[in-house]
Computed example of a mutant assay.
Amino acid sequence: MITRAKLVEQLREHQIRSAQSYSAALAVFSPSPHIASRRDLKVALFYAILFCFVMVSCYIALYLRWFRLSAIFVVFGILLPM
């Protein structure tokens, strides 16, 4: 029979595993090496959304044959995670 303590322990392990799944993907955009607080998460999410916007803008500039503007977007997209 499963006791309450075992259920709590399983829930805690599940929460830790699920928290690390999105945290690893956003860690590239985080200014700190690990996402430890909600502020770090918000900053990383903002940079990830900004990166997606830059890449979409690059594709649009390529579609419209604005190659210099597209190159600027590519350089900015490369420098953004740094």
Rank of each mutant, 00 (worst) to 15 (best):
M55H: 09
K6Y: 08
F76G: 02
F67T: 04
A44N: 03
R17C: 06
C58E: 01
I2F: 03
K42L: 15
Y63A: 09
Q10T: 10
F67H: 10
E13D: 14
V75H: 03
F46Q: 14
Q20A: 15
S70T: 03
I72R: 00
A27V: 10
W66C: 04
P31N: 11
P33L: 14
L80Y: 04
M82E: 13
R12T: 02
A36W: 00
E9F: 07
E13L: 09
S37G: 05
H14R: 14
L62A: 10
L79F: 05
L50A: 10
V75M: 01
L7V: 11
F73C: 10
L11C: 13
Q10E: 15
S21G: 08
V43K: 06
Y47E: 06
R12E: 06
L64P: 03
Q20K: 15
V8W: 08
S30Q: 03
F53A: 11
S70V: 03
L64R: 04
C58V: 02
M55K: 09
F46T: 14
P33V: 11
Q20H: 13
C52F: 08
R12M: 07
Y63R: 07
E9I: 04
L50Q: 09
Y47G: 00
Q10R: 12
A48N: 06
A24T: 14
L50V: 07
